[in-house]
Design a protein around this nucleic acid. Structure first.
Lengths: 345, 345
DNA sequence: ATGAAAGCGCTAACAG
DNA sequence: CTGTTAGCGCTTTCAT
């Protein structure tokens, strides 16, 4: 293979200077006389020189890259999140390394394989359910910069985190269903087991019920798993079981999509027969039929904020601790509010 | 900060062996007596030792990671693609590094900043429109392993690539519109400027027209940009311009979503008044209202195949060259075929 | 303003 | 089976 890639020494020789000088012009560190710098620059692009990251990292002990840990990459939700993170990371001069932490029973090696960590990143953005408490404790103990998104830290740990107003957002939308549309039997479809967002949204759902004197009926909640397919089956099952309801609050927008699909196939009209609401306001939400009433969460913003804080942490500055991002009710058609002749909001 | 992370030397000292021995048990290279190995292992997890990637890479000249270059990360399309790539990379024992090549006017540095390249990956998967021909030529010249997806190589370069049957897929679906639904004035909404997939799909569209003796009408094509919003406006504009049509073939599924939305808002029923079809068969396609008729492309499969070939390339084995993945017509409701009482296909 | 040289932490011969 | 040692390519004092 091509082992012939030039090193800093080659450039130095070519420009008739020392490697230290080359390093200086490459990094803009230290003073170099313009003429010398010019020679070096010429040598660099004549040789197509590209510094080796590994050597750089080893010598400088800084990677200049940020790591993002996700449980899996999928769902419309991740696009804006990644966009936000990508953009801000780049603006801050960091590269981004993403890893989806699926099943890794890689038990053969004596050292636990961590694709992303202090050995190859300067800091980590950790999404819900992508590392366990033990690992979090370890990272915290060695004082490695990391920040949680869509997840609050375990009580014992003082780690900055960014979350959104799940409970009040959920409560607002459910109350809208109740107040504006007279719904009384409202289904809630949970996210994946142990998902924190889902738990808070459920609390909001119950709070709304309670505030309006509607008894909580456990048969009206099931698991939607934050994905269309599971949500579709869940509703289908409820229908088959003869459970009656006049509205569905999906745990998120993907869920709502599955719900609408299942309802329609069962001959129920949305929103005339059943009102439907989601959460997140993913990009396609406004283009669905009917356009989805949902809670707008500043997903991209969460990404940007996460990077911002992480970078501050890395620089040794103070982090803000817990950040709670505001959510907002977005009323469209699926709850029964607007007619279909509106333009997208 | 925590500079105290242990090195291989610490472990060696702790286990009373040489660093070479530690290296052996960590990597499973060379023979080590079980007792010794055990001591080393004990030292390793007592010290929480994690090998430094940079040092490893520098010494071994292998990064064990794959790079993925994308123009931007967004759209429902990427989920399955990333899933496929992630899964296969992991199975092959590689880490994955993703970079979205947005605007980088980082012109200040004398060395071109390449977030991903031979300096930090063993090979690259290159998505459409993420690097230019010059860069491709450079990579090819230094014999660096990389593979193109959703993009054919420039004629002068012999680079393996994975593409899908865009033209025949598009032709099939347009012919379905013509044959099964009697459509004659079919709109086509292009993808982003210069997008190769879009160009082939347009050829398929025109071929279908031609095969049925329908004259190509340039006023029936516009730019949808492969995203809901642009597609929405495009259709809106056409409607405003008084252009008549009985079907729309969106360049991809996201486009189709925007199209349906725009039609509904203009009071046109889908599929009764206008038939709509997409391309890609993204996960939500079957859950839309109406369920989307589209061309199923094995997106996840493309990802897996890309990794497979790239790994082969990296190992110095022969790559297969150009791979063309089959596409398949998926008939659902938006073209007018199925009733809405079906269960999702 | 520039150069010399000492590492950074690890792998990979090569000895023994 | 285990230890020694020479780099890997670069950054970074410390001299000059």
């Amino acid at each position: 293979m091509a082992n012939l890639s030039p090193t800093i020494a080659d450039v130095a020789r070519h420009a008739r200077v020392s490697i230290a000088t080359v390093s200086r012009v490459v990094n803009g560190t230290g003073p170099v006389i313009p003429q010398t710098a010019e020679r070096v620059r010429a040598a660099i692009d004549e040789l197509h020189y590209v510094p080796r990251t590994a050597a750089r990292v080893l010598a400088s002990r800084k990677t200049n890259t940020l790591g993002l840990l996700l449980p899996e990459i999928g769902g419309a939700f991740f696009s804006p999140l990644l966009r936000g993170i990508e953009a801000e990371a780049q603006a801050a001069g960091f590269d981004l390394l993403i890893h989806a932490t699926s099943h890794i029973p890689h038990a053969s090696s004596p050292v636990p394989h961590r694709p992303l960590g202090m050995h190859n990143t300067d800091g980590l953005i950790v999404f819900t359910q992508s590392i366990d408490d033990a690992e979090m404790t370890r990272l915290s103990a060695i004082n490695f910069p990391f920040i949680l998104i869509y997840q609050t830290p375990p009580p014992s740990l003082n780690v900055p985190s960014i979350t959104i107003e799940n409970k009040s957002g959920a409560q607002k939308i459910v109350e809208h269903l109740i107040d504006a549309h007279n719904c009384r039997r409202i289904v809630f479809l949970r996210g994946p087991e142990g998902n924190e967002d889902s738990e808070w949204r459920e609390r909001g759902y119950r709070a709304a019920l309670e505030a309006h004197g509607i008894a909580y009926d456990p048969t009206l909640t099931a698991i939607g798993g934050f994905n269309e397919e599971q949500a579709h089956s869940a509703i289908r099952q409820m229908l088959a079981d003869g459970i009656e309801f006049d509205a569905v609050f999906g745990g998120d927008d993907d869920t709502a999509v599955g719900v609408i699909s299942a309802l329609r196939r069962a001959g129920r009209r949305v929103p005339q027969d059943v009102a439907v609401a989601g959460f997140d306001d993913i990009p396609i939400a406004r283009y669905l039929t009917p356009a989805l009433t949902t809670v707008s969460a500043p997903i991209e913003q969460v990404g940007r904020e996460a990077v911002g804080q992480l970078v501050r942490l890395i620089r040794g500055e103070q982090a803000e601790g817990q950040v709670l991002m505001r959510t907002e009710l977005v009323v469209r058609e699926s709850c029964g509010c607007l007619s279909s002749s509106q333009s997208p909001t």
